[in-house]
Design a protein around this nucleic acid. Sequence first.
DNA 1: GTGATCAGATAGTGGAGCTATCTACTATGG
DNA 2: CCATAGTAGATAGCTCCACTATCTGATCAC
Lengths: 210, 210
Amino acid sequence: MRMAELSAESGVPVATIKYYLREGLLPPGVRTSPNQARYDREHVRRLKLVRALLDVGGLSIARVREVLDGIDEHDDIHKVLGITQRALALSRIAVDEPTREWAMGLLVEVAALRGWELRPDNPVVDSAVGTLGAFATLGRTELVERLAGYAELADRVAALDLAGVRALPERETVVEAAVVGTVLGDALFAALRRLAQEHTSATSWPAGPG
Amino acid sequence: MRMAELSAESGVPVATIKYYLREGLLPPGVRTSPNQARYDREHVRRLKLVRALLDVGGLSIARVREVLDGIDEHDDIHKVLGITQRALALSRIAVDEPTREWAMGLLVEVAALRGWELRPDNPVVDSAVGTLGAFATLGRTELVERLAGYAELADRVAALDLAGVRALPERETVVEAAVVGTVLGDALFAALRRLAQEHTSATSWPAGPG
DNA sequence: GTGATCAGATAGTGGAGCTATCTACTATGG
DNA sequence: CCATAGTAGATAGCTCCACTATCTGATCAC
């Protein structure tokens, strides 16, 4: 497969593919001469993965590279998922110290309830604390009453996630599948949640407050 | 309250506040003379909301403006939430037509199961179809087996969301609260889901495949 | 009245994600 | 074998976004 074909197959412009090659998001093709190379199905596949991480996952080029390097270099699914979660961790909002401590206390409480382990170096903990802090900063502290409920549902969603990964046949694709599931899974569940919100809102609050 | 105080209170640099004023994200202060103005608690509050939508929600300046205009101009919570959902809708991945139809069929099936209404002009439907299409493009079609499960859990999360909005005391803050809940709610649930994934993964798959 | 602060205007900055052009070379159809 | 199209790699440029900095002329606080 030559460059033009790879471009047509993946829907990504040639100039952009060259850019991804330069950035190390795509491995170089097999050289057939000093300035010629061939590509294969794996390149198409990788290219689609890159676009999914960029477009759907909202990752930056640098984060995509980290995740892909993780997939390529590690068999250990925990390590790769750790990298992926770091890549997805949001730039947290600036939260003052008391609010931060309040949020952390809240999270510790819920984690204890669910048996979750909170390691201080976990970037996901930062994300959660930042988001809870943002709620508090905006005066939505009554969230605490529902947090345990959300945590329980998160546990059930996670159980489904893991069941999906576990069911995969080929060992080598498990790591990649887990990454795809993590990154796209957020987008999918968010969309389902909104559809459900619309339904619930329309049926239980038909007129609206206007 | 003068500009310097507003900046200190909100943690946003003066130059940035001026930029937000120009962009219409923040209403102008009350004039005390041709080149002087005063700000109040509402400005601090609005500024915090803007930062939350930008940092945690990941919205662009233009999307934040749309959402804020919606909050200011409409009492109807459905309309404002529609605008918010449009603002959150991802730039969808390019998906070929057969895949798109497959994804749409899948979504219609699940929606029927849950009683959701899918209107064709709904941007959330686009998001969901695009994300399902991305899964398929990457070869993760076994997702279909779990989709109904996710949809059921999405319904339960949405019920919790609505309960939170319903419980609010003041009529005028309900719309804003719903927006905050929608935007920050995604980030929060995603973080909880990852903590739950780590827990489930560590306890049920302790060694890892490496 | 004097130094700090202000509003508003305009211009500039830095990063991200491409996109375009150039050169020297290679593949391919006739 | 030649003409044309395609290719690798290098480099430069582009557009958009979210600020950030500077300037001017006026006002405030002491």
